[in-house]
Simulated scan of single mutants.
Amino acid sequence: MHPHLLGRGGAEVRAEALARTLDAPLYAGFGAREHIDEDVEVRLAFEDSSLRRLCTSKIVRDFAGIVGWPAVAELRTFDVLVFSNEGATWYPPGVDQAVVRYQGSLDQAAYSRNDDFAGVKHRLMSALKRLTLPSTSAYPDVWVTPSTWTAREMERYLGVRADYICPPPIDVDAFNPRPLDEREGYYLTMSRLVDQKHVDEVIAAVEEVGARLVVAGEGPARERLEAQASDRVEFVGWVDGAEKRELLEDASGFLFAGRGEAFGIVTAEAMAAGTPVLAVASGHTQHQIPRECGIIVERGCLADAIRRYELDGIEGSAAEIHAHARALFDQTRFEQTIREAVDLACERAQLSRATLATSPASASEHQQRQSRASSDNH
C-alpha cells in the first residue's frame, strides 16, 4: 500500500519492488498506473473519489488519505499488509492481519521541514498529522526502513525502532560503468524539480566554476530553474530505462543538493553507474557516500567540491564505485530481507492472536506463575 502515484521517484521504485517481491497488488490512493512497471498490478483506491480533480493539492491528498483509506473494504481480504510510507497507514488493519511498515522519510511538512511550509492551511494540516500519525505506529508487527537516517526519524518522532534496515534494490548489473577518463565531460543532476531538491544550488555551483550540467527531471520548479540557467545547462526532462543509464554512465560526476533525503535512490544509481557523487551533507546522503565514491560538503560549498574533484579526483575508480553499489543495493538482498520481515510479522501476529485468545483469568495465572518462578530463581 502506497500513498499516491503522482510521479516516479525513489518511493515509487521502492513500492514497486515490494509488490514484485511479494507477488502482490500495489494499492495507491490517487495517481496513474503509468508510473509503475506493467508487470505489477496497480489498484487505485481513490480513482472514483470526488476529490480526484483536486489531488494536486497536498492538503487534499492528506485529507483524502485520512478519511479514505479506512473505507477500502477489500483490504480486509488480505492476510498480510505491507505499508510503503505513512500515507496509507490511516487504514486500520484487522486484529488477524499481519502488518509490515516500510517507512521512508516521514512527512517533512509535518516534521523535519515544517518551518519551510508557510500558510495557515499547511500549518494546521501538519499539526493534525503530528497529533494523529503517531497513533498509527501501533499497527505494524514489523518495521523496515531504508537507512539509518530514517531509523533515527522513526525513533525520534514515532517512538519506535526499526526491525530491519533494508536499502531499496537497484539492478546494478544493468549498468556498464566506463572509466572516468573516458566520460563525456558533463555533470549530471537528476530528480523531481521541486524546491526541496535544491537544484538551484546545483545550477549556481556549475555556473560558478564554468562547468557543463545536464538536468534530468520534471516538476513545478522547471520554468524558474530554466530562467536561472545559462546555456551551459541543458534540461532534458524526465528520463528512464536505457536513456537514464546512459546519462549516468557518461557523466563525469553526479551533483546532488537535496535536503533530508531518506535514502536517495538516484545517488545509489549514480554509484551503480560508477559515477562519483558530489553532494551536500544532508539527510542520509551524507552517510551514503564514502570517500572512494565521492565528496560530501556543507551546503553552499558545492562549487568547491567540483573544483576539488577536477583537481584531485577521488580515491575510487569507476569499477570500485560500481562494486560498492553492488555490495549494498543488490536485489537478492532486498528480496530476502523483505520476505524475512513478512515471516516475522506473521509470527508476531500469531503470537498476538494467541495472547488475545487467553482468558483474563488464565493470563493472570500465567503472570503469577512467572512471578513465582522469578522469586524461586532469586
Rank of each mutant, 00 (worst) to 15 (best):
I314F: 00
R130F: 03
A354D: 14
R113D: 07
F63G: 12
R183D: 01
H324G: 00
G217K: 03
A138Q: 15
R152L: 13
A270H: 04
A17R: 01
A17C: 04
V60R: 09
P168M: 04
D37C: 04
E226W: 03
E47H: 07
A204F: 09
G29A: 12
A15D: 04
Y186R: 04
E182H: 14
H35L: 06
R76Q: 12
A345P: 04
V239G: 12
R369K: 12
Q350D: 14
K121T: 15
R33W: 02
T89C: 07
A17H: 02
G253V: 03
V144T: 01
W238G: 05
D173L: 02
D240F: 11
E340I: 02
R212G: 11
Q288I: 00
S364H: 15
A204T: 11
T358K: 07
D231H: 14
R52W: 03
K129Y: 06
L248W: 03
R369Y: 11
R212M: 09
L351T: 07
R222S: 14
A109W: 06
R369M: 11
R259V: 02
L351H: 13
T189M: 03
A327M: 02
F256A: 00
S191M: 04
R212H: 14
F329L: 02
V202H: 06
T150K: 05
V95W: 09
V215S: 13
E208R: 13
E12R: 13
R43G: 08
S135P: 03
E310W: 08
E218Y: 04
R130V: 02
R130E: 02
L158Y: 10
G31Q: 08
P70I: 09
L255V: 03
F254T: 04
S50L: 09
R178H: 02
D312E: 12
F117S: 14
K129G: 01
I36A: 14
E234M: 10
S105K: 03
D250I: 00
W143L: 11
K244N: 03
P290W: 00
D141W: 10
L193T: 04
G241V: 02
L248V: 01
A327I: 00
R76Y: 00
P134Q: 09
S359E: 04
A319M: 04
Y139C: 10
R152K: 15
P168G: 06
A211S: 13
R339W: 00
S230Y: 15
E184Q: 13
A216C: 05
R232C: 03
S135H: 13
Y309S: 01
V297W: 01
L128P: 10
H287N: 07
I165C: 04
R372V: 00
L81E: 11
Y27F: 11
T77D: 12
S352C: 15
F256W: 01
E310F: 05
Q367S: 15
Q350P: 05
Y187R: 08
Q288K: 02
E234V: 13
R61Y: 11
D96C: 08
